[in-house]
Design a protein around this nucleic acid. Structure first.
Lengths: 133, 133
DNA sequence: CAGTATCCGATTGGATACTG
DNA sequence: CAGTATCCAATCGGATACTG
């Protein structure tokens, strides 16, 4: 890792920046909603049933969890397996495609954890300048 | 790249998954909006003035670009430099913190570009099953 | 237990007009 | 040119009630 040092300052741009930004915009439209990454994170440990998922995530409504899971299923990131028992049992699991998303998300969450303090102090300074007294 | 093969299946979870997911959720709340990554992408090549930024991105309203830039400035990802000339000239530029975000975003856009075809065919198959005729 | 449907408040974001 | 303020339509998402 680390690559060359000069690359660190390189742009996301270069030749194909336009495509990269469009693709990035699309994927963020998709996973940038309130619950998708939470679901992927919860399922990254292994399959979970609907209500277990709900408890694991916490704070998600019945409705939104359903919608989020449908969207993930539609995109091929999650599989849904229904066991026609009484009471019903439905398991959700990441597909290989879904699992392949974990690493990119890890990179991003690593950045978030590492830089959160800097962001928060920047916010404090910015807000201080605005509301002096 | 490539790392070890067994890690591919590893979970985002492990010990500190909770913190990772919370941090990720927060950062996506922040950059997962409609314009932030477009602005970062546009500025990744170098400083730009307000209207240049607007033209580069395309489709963004005056208002939203302003709000997006303010938020980025507040978080310390972008600097704003106003030249008090007539007409006014204001340049926006990524800070080191802002530039550090480029690489994680690159990883994500790489994933998006690579897997978009799979996602789209999955969508087509899913929608076909739902609306048979 | 899992999923759907309806309702409604909150937030988002574009259009527009106005200011320095 | 850059920024702010107002207005409003569209979307998001929670609460609730109902179904198999």
């Amino acid at each position: 890792m680390m690559a060359s040092t000069t690359v660190v300052e390189a742009s996301v741009a270069d030749d194909h920046d336009h495509e990269a930004c469009r693709a990035l915009g699309q994927i963020l439209d998709r996973i940038g909603d309130k619950w998708t990454v939470m679901v992927v994170g919860a399922l990254s440990r292994g399959p979970l049933r609907f209500n277990a998922l709900m408890r694991t995530i916490g704070g998600v409504s019945h409705r939104m969890l359903t919608l989020t899971l449908r969207a993930l299923e539609r995109d091929g990131l999650v599989t849904r397996t229904a066991y026609l028992t009484i009471p019903p049992k439905v398991e959700y699991e990441l597909t290989p495609l879904g699992r392949s998303l974990i690493e990119p998300l890890r990179v991003l969450s690593g950045w978030a954890i590492e830089n959160r303090p800097a962001i928060e102090s920047s916010r404090a300074a910015f807000d201080m300048a605005g509301e002096p007294g």
